Computed example of a mutant assay.
Amino acid sequence: MTAPPSREHTRLAGLDGIRGLAALFVVLHHCWLTSFPGFPSDNGPFWAGWLLYGHFAVVVFIVLSGFSLAVGPARRDWRLGGVARFAHRRAWRILPPYWTALVYSLIVAWTVVPQTDAGPPTAKSVLFYGLLIQDVFGAPSPNGAFWSIAVEAQLYVVFPLLLLVVRRFGAAAMMAAVTVVVAAVGALSPVVPAVALLDRFTPQFAALFALGAVAAGVVGGHWRAPAPWLSAVALAPVVTLIAVRGSVWTVNHYFWVDLALGPAVGLFLAALAAGRPAPLVAFLDTRPLRSLGSFSYSLYLTHAPLVVALHALVVAPHVAKGVPAFLTMVALAVPASVAVAWGFAALFELPFQRHRSWKALRTAILGRIRPARGGTAAAPRYEPEKSATP
């Protein structure tokens, strides 16, 4: 079994900044949704129209997740280092904050305000969301951001298989195989009802995840890093298409738009891993953005119930709809969401990053409790290993 790499060896400058900005964009997106009803129509001012597309932050998260998880294997000739070890580390990293956020979301939805028009969560909601199968079976959502967590968990299951294909047949073969299957689903789902059932799994994300994993080959020296401007070239036609066709068309065609957006994100991450462009890397690696990125997962998990509650209880009854409501939501919900996420991460996310087993976590907790009771022993110090998850 391969020993885990050190924190310094795994950290790539700028990735935390991307995580933080993407999570913050999702918060702003939900502020936009509460202030300008009628989604997917763009009923807001032109200067805020870009906030309608919070879905694209999830696209970035998925590509980034495949990239981050593949960095270590790419440095080891695409070897995972043990499926059981990988599964344990992913579960340890993802599930404690997720299950805690689920409890928090259920409490808010049952006692304050439901998340959606479908009404408060039910027993099925608890079961399906607790087992991360909410994209398989429908139930009232306790948290509007939870849909993507199930998708990501399912991608973790196929990740070892993707690496095996890369090792046996090459990255191009793996990418081609995944893309062909995903494109076939997209082409057939409008005309074949059985295939349309697969849409609930957001199948395009499988290709985006695979693309991120392939892009991580840059870190392992499997291919050269692309020039930074190539990402902008790949992005330009996607942005043009969205501007020309409008929000309703774009949302209704997320499947293909996501696939078109993926290469731009993958090229950007590959260039960033090589330290280019240097000014942007330096900006993304500033201390505030690194800090925001360190608890971006908690921000993603916890913000939606808070945004909905603030709008329903504070903003909607007292502030006019539209721009006044939006500006008020941004002023209230953004700092509140960041503060709650920071506290949540300190309790339920970061300890699981610093301590990689129940024994280590228990030892750290007892080490803090004993001095508080008058003891002199200091708690053992564990250096956190950088997580790959946004």
Rank of each mutant, 00 (worst) to 15 (best):
L198C: 12
T179V: 08
P190R: 02
A196C: 07
V218Y: 02
P203A: 07
A194E: 12
W147I: 05
F209M: 02
S189G: 07
S189Y: 08
R200V: 15
L162K: 00
F146L: 12
L164W: 13
D199N: 12
A194M: 12
L211T: 07
P160N: 05
V181F: 13
T202Y: 14
A187G: 15
A206P: 06
P190S: 04
V181D: 02
A194T: 14
G186E: 02
G186A: 06
Q204F: 12
I149P: 06
L162W: 01
V165R: 05
A171W: 10
A150Y: 10
V157A: 09
Q204C: 10
F205L: 12
Y156C: 00
G217C: 05
F201Q: 05
A183D: 06
G212R: 00
L198Y: 08
S148R: 03
W147C: 04
M174S: 13
A196L: 08
A213H: 06
G186P: 06
V185I: 15
L197V: 15
S148G: 10
R200G: 13
A210F: 09
R200K: 14
F146P: 03
A176M: 13
A183L: 15
V165E: 08
A207W: 12
P190G: 04
Q204G: 11
G186K: 00
A183F: 13
A150Q: 10
F169E: 06
V178K: 00
V214N: 01
L155M: 15
Q154H: 15
A150K: 03
P203V: 11
L198R: 02
V182G: 01
A215S: 14
V195K: 01
L188P: 06
P160K: 02
V151D: 00
V157K: 00
A213D: 11
L161Q: 09
V165T: 13
L163A: 04
D199P: 04
A213V: 11
R167K: 13
V166A: 15
F159L: 02
L161I: 15
A216I: 05
V180T: 07
V214H: 03
A210R: 00
V185L: 08
A216N: 03
D199G: 14
R168P: 10
V192M: 09
M174I: 11
A206F: 14
T179G: 08
